[in-house]
Design a protein around this nucleic acid. Structure first.
Lengths: 108, 108
DNA sequence: GTTTTAATATTGGGTTTCCAATACATTTAT
DNA sequence: ATAAATGTATTGGAAACCCAATATTAAAAC
């Protein structure tokens, strides 16, 4: 059922947050696909498969939010200016919508 | 595109959070479907339609996370014990996974 | 007792998300 | 050069999410 979080019961899938998270990670530093997967694993508990991460990156690239540059066998993904603006808005929305929930469980 | 949040660019849909949010709302107090919709509108900016909210509630009920009781023309939904436990876990996961993002944008 | 209103519920379907499996490309080791 | 290793990418499809439109149920108004 809920493969993206083994600890979470299958009551709240929380899908739809992947692209958001990728943009946020890329705002810290440019990364290749594998690094992004590993960073996600650290935070979410599970590692997105290649079939998840690369289509997501492709989608972000098509939308102009991310740029890519081949570097040896890796492909470095970088947040575009549009992506940075989009992320800013998305973060604001995210905090407005979910901050309440977060605050309540912070520290427990 | 992204109907669930007019302010968010269509880079991060943030869908998949509806059931989670419903459980969280019901942990505050029991509510009927209309009230849940209205609470969601306050927080997310858009109101889920009946075709969204009632199937979601039905799903939660089938999973045993929510109980319902007809009261006049309204149906009061209440968080079950299983639902409370599930929500607890889900909140922990949510905070672990997204707290970092939230903290950074808190106050901006 | 109809009619209107309010709330719930269902149906059908479009879109998105994500994964498993597979294939491709580039570097490194031998 | 050939093989192994590493990272990237695609394809096909299953499941989930959510909505528009419609139907149902119950109360209130008349």
């Amino acid at each position: 059922m809920n493969e993206s979080c083994p600890e979470t019961p299958n009551c709240c899938d929380m899908r739809g947050m992947l692209s958001f998270y990728i943009l946020w990670l890329l705002s810290k530093r440019s990364m290749n696909g594998k690094e992004i997967s590993e960073e996600l694993e650290k935070r979410r508990g599970t590692k997105p498969t290649p079939g998840t991460i690369y289509p997501a990156l492709k989608d972000l690239r098509i939308k102009g939010l991310v740029e890519m540059e081949r570097k040896g066998r890796a492909t470095i993904y970088t947040l575009s200016e549009t992506g940075r603006e989009g992320l800013e808005k998305a973060c604001r929305y995210f905090c407005a919508a979910f901050g309440e929930i977060f605050q309540e469980y912070d520290g427990n």
